[in-house]
């Protein structure tokens, strides 16, 4: 299958690309750093013998029409689209304008624009649209405010796409990710254990073809976020989370 992975250079995106290559997918990988993407393309090509193309791209400065053209020239119709890219920082209160723009661009706007560009591809039979959100968007908090809002918007957009694609054979899977053992969480004191990228990638790739909608990964974040959502405001406002 022809699979486009956005955000493939490290962490969960890289682990997903490895799993897909092992399963024989032809891959078009996008990440921000040309050195990382070149190394990954070589590795997957050599180890799995699949066709892998890579491109470094700043998602905040996107020319989607040109990207669509390059991808189609490379391997034709996109059958699976993974949007795993994300940037995060503990933004709280006013953040620098350029940072706020970047958080919104990478976590939301670029995703919408790329999915939109390949939507007609995905309406064909047997396609999958996979997105990565965050448990942080379960309720607005003072920390991660812009990031969580962008991810919340992304989840809404994926829900809309799932609705739009009803009647087609495209399956939509959106993951509300908990802690993943990547640079995002490195060195942080976490309240809950972090999932290894490869474990997360296995679940995500195994779920291809399933009409899941939005789910938690790992699943046990569901009761945690449910409690946070149900906390009465007089209590919630006192929490430093």
């Amino acid at each position: 299958m022809n699979t486009l992975v956005i955000g493939a250079s490290a962490g969960l995106g890289r682990a997903i690309a490895e799993r897909l290559a092992a399963d024989g997918h032809a891959l078009y990988l996008i990440a921000s750093d040309p050195r990382d993407i070149a190394a990954l393309v070589s590795d997957l090509n050599i180890r799995f013998g699949v066709k892998v193309t890579g491109e470094s791209l700043d998602l905040a400065k996107l020319d989607v029409a040109a990207l669509r053209r390059r991808v189609h020239e490379s391997f034709g119709r996109v059958e699976n689209l993974f949007y795993i890219a994300g940037v995060s920082m503990l933004d709280s209160g006013p953040v620098a304008d350029d940072l706020a723009v970047r958080l919104i661009e990478v976590n939301f706007t670029a995703a919408v624009r790329i999915v939109n560009a390949f939507l007609l591809d995905l309406k064909e039979d047997g396609a999958n649209l996979v997105g990565a959100g965050s448990v942080s968007s379960s309720r607005g908090r003072r920390t991660n405010s812009v990031y969580a809002a962008a991810k919340s918007g992304l989840e809404t957009y994926f829900a809309a796409m799932r609705h739009f694609l009803v009647g087609s054979q495209c399956r939509v899977q959106f993951y509300r990710l908990g802690y993943i053992d990547t640079r995002m969480t490195f060195g942080q004191r976490l309240m809950f254990p972090a999932l290894k990228p490869d474990q997360g990638a296995k679940v995500i790739v195994d779920n291809l073809g399933r009409d899941l909608g939005a789910v938690y990964l790992p699943w046990w974040w569901w009761p945690i976020t449910a409690i946070i959502r149900l906390l009465p405001w007089p209590i919630f406002k006192r929490l430093n989370i």
Binding site: R35, A39, R183, F186
Partner: peptide, 9 residues
């Protein structure tokens, strides 16, 4: 301890 996962880091 630091554990970079990208060349830029």
């Amino acid at each position: 301890f630091d554990e970079p996962d990208r060349y830029r880091e």
